[in-house]
């Protein structure tokens, strides 16, 4: 049995009176890609944002239940949320590099966590860009504005930015939804490579993408986890009728 990196237990979430996540239980395996798929508005992005506590910024959010990372409850009072977010990186739906140079984008997180030494910064930025499959394309333009990169390059830059602070978990929130097919292919190749070192959770409403990149898939509908299993099983032999209907394109 694979070790679970993230354990979600009886998680309920409300935005004011709106019950968005309903009794979620999920064991996310270590060093694997887990896809959370489901139709728009099913709560999959909200669930993802619980794992690095980005929902803290949305007023009126109420959470019950537990999320354990390596056995520690991240909603416990003693948890340092800044350290948590360093361990749990996130890449957003729309590429959002800072309006700074390529180098400064990747160095941002390092500087925040106290690295000042120029040589060390350079080394770590280089490594992150190599790991994000971006180095060869931009090694001569490190000090040019990040916003001049193509959309696909920007998204891989955002991954490099997240990798630079050496997280253990990477959350990807529909990372390819704003990209063209070729950029998407490069991004998926990168995700498959990254699973060797990181625990990856990817939210997507694209079935083929979930099938292509993930080892495990959770299917969500209206705030509930309908089914969770090894990706090949979910796609070839779903147990729940609702999963089957979704896969056959009956809704979503």
């Amino acid at each position: 049995m694979v070790r679970s990196k993230i354990v979600i237990e009886h998680l309920n979430l409300w935005f004011d009176d709106n019950h968005v996540l309903k009794n979620i239980n999920l064991h996310i395996p270590e060093q694997a890609v887990t896809a959370i798929m489901g139709p728009s508005g099913c709560g999959k992005s909200t669930l993802l944002r619980c794992i690095n506590r980005m929902n803290d910024f949305i007023p009126g959010t109420r959470i019950e239940g537990h999320i354990l990372i390596d056995g520690k409850d991240i909603y416990h009072d003693t948890i340092n949320v800044y350290e948590l977010r360093k361990r749990v990186g996130m890449v957003f739906q729309k590429p959002n590099p800072f309006p700074k140079s390529i180098f400064e984008n990747v160095a941002y997180g390092l500087k925040i966590h106290g690295i000042r030494d120029r040589k060390l910064l350079h080394e770590k930025v280089r490594k992150a860009l190599i790991d994000a499959n971006l180095w060869d394309e931009i090694k001569n333009r490190l000090h040019e504005p990040a916003l001049e990169l193509s959309g696909g390059q920007q998204q891989r830059l955002c991954i490099a930015r997240a990798l630079a602070v050496e997280p253990e978990i990477i959350l990807l929130d529909e990372p390819a939804s704003a990209l063209d097919p070729i950029s998407t292919a490069k991004l998926e190749e990168l995700i498959r490579k990254l699973r060797e070192k990181y625990t990856i959770v990817i939210v997507t409403h694209n079935l083929q993408q979930a099938a292509r990149v993930s080892d495990y898939t959770a299917f969500m509908l209206m705030g509930e986890i309908v089914e969770f299993d090894v990706t090949t099983k979910i796609f070839t032999n779903p147990k729940d009728r609702r999963t089957e209907n979704y896969l056959m394109g009956k809704f979503g």
Binding site: M54, E83, Y108, R161
Partner: peptide
């Protein structure tokens, strides 16, 4: 200032 920039910063563990 667009919110995406703030979220990107917070997601890296910034205060």
């Amino acid at each position: 200032v667009p919110h995406e920039f703030r979220y990107a910063s917070y997601a890296l563990g910034a205060t």
